[in-house]
Write a protein that binds this DNA or RNA. Structure first.
Ligand code: FES
Ligand code: FES
Lengths: 152, 152
DNA sequence: TCAGTATACGACCGATTCTGTCGGCATTTC
DNA sequence: GAAATGCCGACAGAATCGGTCGTATACTGA
């Protein structure tokens, strides 16, 4: 139900962790997994996915591991989710095409597609960098407000 | 993966259908199910859920059925989803409390909560009425643009 | 060259969630 | 009282997700 998978969650955590350790040449999957108590092998597969999709650079061998392929500012949450979980659709008929058996009768597909785009836009506007700036001791005022246009 | 369940989908379709037939006193679950080719019993349960949550009024007996409890303008997509699928959380740790075993280590929960609120806001700003106004023959200009604030 | 560390990738299975069905009961109309 | 309808819980089949394993491959450094 409109929920991130744990894999995507893990992926975001890992990217954030990498973004917070820019000095280190590379961090292994195990390093990150241990830092958060995530199953190491599972995280490894996730990082591999992110590598395949160009979000990370990998390096095998001793002292190998992963590093961000781009600046943390240039990687959006949307890309991460997309790389891990595949195409982003909130409607249950996942394909933009017409694989849904009730495509002819379903009348909410089109309006919901707009909502889909809006949410995707929100996720696209969030970078890994943004995730690292979540500190907010008390009533701080320096927040970044953005406006997202919802077109119906 | 950030996807509506079919139940929520069906629910939205049904509400839209009801909104489009305001003159009829009440439509039975079967009527709506037949109109869209949805399993009738499943839709019945969904409509019961919506009734329980005050979005619909039901009426048993012959010529009974369901009708909107409020104006279509006053029912948001958020309410529908919430009534059918329960609390809305995009993070995999569903509870706002601390039922997630890795709550102490997870560092993205808080920033993602903001994203969650933003998306909820988008859904709250969409009414059933909006779903019925999806016609847009070509390059029409009379669109409703709304601004949603995303606070990070 | 060889051992050790690390990524890459596919197969697989248990757990969870979702979808849909069934059966029985209550309420209203005719 | 019969028919139509809503109400509700239980359940089974299906799909998805989470996590593990085994093995192959690549790189490093001694
Ligand atoms: S659910 Fe598939 S087209 Fe609407
Ligand atoms: S996944 Fe549960 S706290 Fe982040």
């Amino acid at each position: 139900m409109l929920k991130l998978t744990k894999k995507a969650d893990y992926g975001l955590m890992a990217l954030k962790y990498l973004a917070e350790h820019p000095e280190t040449p590379a961090l292994s999957a195990k390093d990150v997994a241990d830092a958060y108590g995530i199953p190491a092998q599972l995280l490894a597969k996730i990082l591999q996915l992110l590598t395949r999709n160009g979000l990370l650079r990998s390096h095998a061998g001793m002292n190998g591991g992963y590093e961000l392929a781009r600046d943390a500012r240039e990687i959006s949450a949307y890309e991460v989710i997309h790389a891990i979980d595949g195409p982003f659709f909130i409607t249950s008929c996942t394909k933009g095409d017409k694989n849904c058996d009730l495509t002819p009768s379903c009348t909410i597909k089109e309006p919901l597609a707009r909502v889909n785009d809006t949410i995707a836009g929100v996720l696209k506007s969030i970078s890994i960098q943004d995730l690292t700036e979540h500190e907010q001791p008390a009533g701080r005022a320096a927040e970044a407000n953005r406006l997202v246009t919802l077109t119906l």
